[in-house]
């Protein structure tokens, strides 16, 4: 489809890059209190069939980036001020509203955390699923309904034929999330963005839903961006990880490497601070301090007030994404020390 589209960037010629390539993306929210810089130069890419996990706490900008990619940012107060979102060779930010809308749903789709509020409570799920086909594909209602049943079977909702007339509130949390997945899958998009898809679910149901998502992704060779705060979920399904902090990517890495040897103190802190099922330690390591206020992001490296490794240079110089290895990068002046040293140094105050 879009493998040979002209690209108006420095590459020129035919396009053979990643499925989605986000470059130097900046998003800010203009509020009464001031300008909140939610996303500050995010760069990541996803290939077809690949799972990128975007890890971060609340306020890290992980969801805002996703909204910018989908083009569903609340604007105002949110504005994309800089950057490119290159999807299948086209910069989405240069597209008009109508073209952008065609991409949404058909080419890329999103799954939200709260399925109950993302589904329309007054329409039954058959109508909502069928709508995808009647609106985007111009099918008749009857055809659309048949496709809806098919979709529900594909996401393993039992008794799909009967349940198609049910309303969202009649489904359990796990089943509702399956309906959401079915909806996202309806038009067989090339990219799915899942924003905390299992956070609201119980542990045993979480596993079911994650497995389903991973399986569908393999089957259709989709790109998947999994936005989460849970290092455990990431470890199970992701190929590579981008860790976000204060609207920036602070570390990117293939999934195995990051758990073995994190190259950024924040990642390391997160990994050390989660209690382990198979170990009973004495005291948990805790990252000191609080996530930053986006209205007043600290100077230099945004993590420096909480970092055990911070020196003077961290207070003044914003670290670039240093290349750690072929597929790894870390935005820390002292990534070498972080990688090499396993002990947490004492705070130098």
């Amino acid at each position: 489809m879009a493998t040979s589209v002209e690209l108006s960037t420095e590459e020129g010629g035919t396009y053979s890059g990643p499925l989605l390539d986000v470059r130097n993306l900046h998003v800010e929210f203009r509020t009464r209190e001031g300008v909140a810089r939610a996303v500050n130069g995010v760069e990541y890419s996803v290939d077809a069939g690949e799972t990128l996990a975007v890890l971060g706490e609340s306020g890290s900008g992980k969801s805002v980036t996703a909204q910018a990619i989908m083009g569903i940012l609340d604007s105002p107060p949110g504005f994309v001020t800089q950057g490119k979102i290159i999807f299948q060779g086209r910069d989405l930010l240069t597209l008009g509203g109508e073209e952008r809308r065609k991409v949404r749903g058909a080419r890329m789709a999103m799954i939200f955390q709260d399925a109950l509020s993302s589904l329309n409570p007054v329409l039954n799920v058959g109508e909502q699923l069928g709508e995808m086909f009647t609106v985007h594909r111009g099918m008749s209602r009857k055809e659309a309904r048949a496709r809806a049943v098919e979709l529900m079977e594909r996401v393993r909702i039992p008794a799909a034929k009967e349940r198609i007339r049910s309303y969202p509130h009649q489904f359990s949390g796990g089943m509702r999330q399956r309906v959401m997945i079915a909806m996202a899958m309806a038009l067989e998009p090339e990219l799915i963005i899942a924003d905390e898809p299992t956070t609201a679910l119980d542990v045993t149901v979480q596993a079911q839903v994650m497995d389903l998502l991973a399986e569908l992704q393999r089957e259709y060779n989709m790109g998947l961006i999994l936005i989460t705060h849970d290092l455990g979920v990431v470890a199970d399904v992701a190929d590579k990880i981008a860790v976000m902090y204060a609207g920036r990517i602070v570390e990117t890495s293939p999934v195995h490497d990051i758990y073995r040897a994190p190259a950024h103190p924040y990642t390391k802190g997160l990994l050390d601070s989660i209690p382990r099922l198979d170990q009973k330690g004495q005291e948990l390591y805790a990252i000191k301090g609080l996530p930053p206020n986006l209205l007043h992001i600290p100077s230099g490296c945004a993590f420096h007030p909480r970092c055990p490794r911070a020196r003077d240079v961290c207070r003044t110089d914003d670290p670039p994404l240093y290349r750690v290895s072929q597929h790894r990068a870390s935005a820390c002046h002292f990534w070498k020390e972080t990688l090499g040293d396993d002990s947490v140094p004492s705070d130098d105050t």
Partner: peptide, 23 residues
């Protein structure tokens, strides 16, 4: 067995029991 463990290496050592259905 369903608890995600923050360690990709652990995947191969774990048997996961996926329960069917909901509570």
């Amino acid at each position: 067995s369903a608890v995600p463990v923050p360690d990709p290496e652990a995947r191969q050592y774990r048997e996961r029991i996926i329960l069917s259905g909901d509570v």
